[in-house]
Amino acid sequence: MNLKALDQNELDYRMKDLAKKEREILHEVLETLKEIDARKSYLEFGFASLFEYLVQGVGYSEGSAQRRIDAARLLRELPVMAEKIQSGELNLSQISLLQKAIREVTRIRDVPVTTEQKMEILENLGKKSFAQTQQQVAAFFDLPIAQATQQRVQADESVRIELTLSKEAFAKIKNAQELLSHAVSSQDLAVFLEYLADKVIKQKTGRKDSGDIKGPTKTNTAAQVKLKTKKGLLKNQPCCQWVDSQTGRQCKSKWLLQVDHKQSRWADGDHKIENLQVLCAAHNKLKYLQEAGIRNIS
């Protein structure tokens, strides 16, 4: 189509029609994503998480992927939201902002946000700008609005810090998070930094808690052997070895890595190194569930 041949009214009509179709397609995307999430199909596709599937498998940017995940999961809980998305009353940025606030409230106050509360705040966000949405959400949950300052002490004496890392420095931090993911399963950088601070303080001050090892025991010796085996495996298998049988794609996640028996113990598999492999926790669980089905059939 030659757009230059269209007059102003025709361009306006075309733009609004395309925007409407775009919102309709977005709703279909979210419904499809919701079903993939419910089935955990991304594991079968060879990805450790829904986020990795959208970024690496589908091609979304990280921000776009997270916004769609937030919207799909909220849509599952609040189906009425579909109409608001299709009409343009709500957009992904607003929904993602709301979901982030809900996670923060749950984490800080250890109290889940109810479906009724979510519905109430959504009713007030229609046609609001992003700045207005920030104010509405912050007021509703009694949360401070994030400021674009480098360092700011907030009402509860917490400190908000904004910093820029080089590509190399960020890669080092991500690698450290992966290596310590069994101790700190959250990918939240603030949680990880607090964990590191606790470890350094304990090491430098000599303080020990009741969970520290008191001395060598048979149990500790076995644990050390197991740890040595895992370290040896990780040298040759530094990531999840799960492979999608349909596409041949390997998961390659480095998050929550576990040692798995290729031929399981219930099927007379042994502990020899040749029978061991590294899987992420998600694919290790999937393998167990698949094998449980086989055992039930037999």
Rank of each mutant, 00 (worst) to 15 (best):
K128N: 05
T114A: 12
E28Y: 11
Q136Y: 11
A101R: 07
L74G: 09
N175S: 03
E123K: 12
N284R: 06
K285C: 14
R207F: 02
L257F: 09
V184Q: 01
S158C: 06
I145F: 10
Q134D: 12
Q187C: 10
G63N: 15
M15L: 14
H261V: 05
S166T: 13
N220C: 06
G63R: 07
T221D: 04
G57H: 10
I36L: 12
D156Q: 02
L6E: 09
V137I: 15
Y60G: 01
F45T: 00
E31L: 06
S129W: 08
I173S: 06
L289S: 14
D17H: 13
R107S: 00
V153L: 05
E83T: 12
K127F: 15
L97N: 02
W242H: 12
Q136P: 00
A155I: 03
L257P: 11
R295L: 14
I213S: 13
I25Q: 14
N175K: 13
L6N: 13
E116H: 10
S41W: 14
N124Y: 04
Q154I: 08
Q132F: 10
W242C: 02
F192N: 03
G59I: 11
E178K: 04
A146L: 12
D260A: 05
I201A: 05
E168S: 07
T149V: 07
P216D: 08
A171P: 01
S264C: 11
